[in-house]
């Protein structure tokens, strides 16, 4: 321990890092260019480089689903995707859903509106991932019962325990707005 205020350690910067390059991502219909190295995940690219912090980091290891986004319409975990690998894909985040499905006066996607109506969240941190996952789920078309929805939403952990309301919200959209789902 030093007795004075610490001095900033100066060391010769000799080590080599991988080169960055310009990668263009199509996010929510817009082309966004960013300078990144290959080690930047799609999740970090969205949150730290594009300031799209709606997509959440809950574990960074594919174990919680908070980072769920849609890539070419399919739900994936953005934390395990490298941004350089999805440069020619259509990426939709929670911010894009609002625009994409704006059916309500406040511009909300029906799934977003249903989540509010059914109180399908508490702290809100898993919510964007739940909503993107739910939109992906209905597009997939494999959920035929409440139990199917539960199984196919089990990749999205909600630590607040809003699960019954989440399933209610999804059923609501599935049953009443099949064309929008």
């Amino acid at each position: 321990m030093s007795n004075q205020s610490a001095t900033i350690t100066e060391a010769p910067k000799t080590a080599q890092l991988p080169r960055t390059s310009i990668v263009t991502l199509t996010v929510n219909g817009e082309q966004r260019s960013l300078r990144i190295a290959p080690w930047t995940t799609l999740l970090d690219a969205l949150r730290e480089y594009l300031d799209l912090t709606g997509t959440k980091k809950g574990c960074d290891h594919g174990q919680c689903g908070a980072c769920t986004v849609l890539v070419d319409g399919k739900r994936i975990n953005a934390c395990l995707a490298l941004a350089v690998m999805v440069d020619d894909r259509e990426i939709t985040t929670i911010e894009g859903l609002t625009k994409e499905g704006s059916a309500t006066p406040d511009g909300l996607h029906p799934m977003q509106a249903a989540f509010i109506e059914h109180d399908a969240f508490q702290c809100g941190y898993c919510t964007p991932g739940q909503i993107c996952s739910a939109v992906g789920l209905l597009k997939e078309g494999h959920a035929h019962s409440r139990e199917d929805i539960q199984e196919l939403m089990s990749g999205n952990i909600c630590r607040c325990g809003a699960y019954p309301n989440i399933v209610d919200a999804i059923e609501d959209v599935k049953n009443h707005q099949p064309d929008r789902a």
């Binding site: 985040t93 406040d106 909300l108 509010i116 969240f121």
Partner: peptide, 9 residues
């Protein structure tokens, strides 16, 4: 705060 939470805001 629902709107902020479901839109990522």
């Amino acid at each position: 705060d629902g709107y902020a939470k479901v839109t990522g805001g």
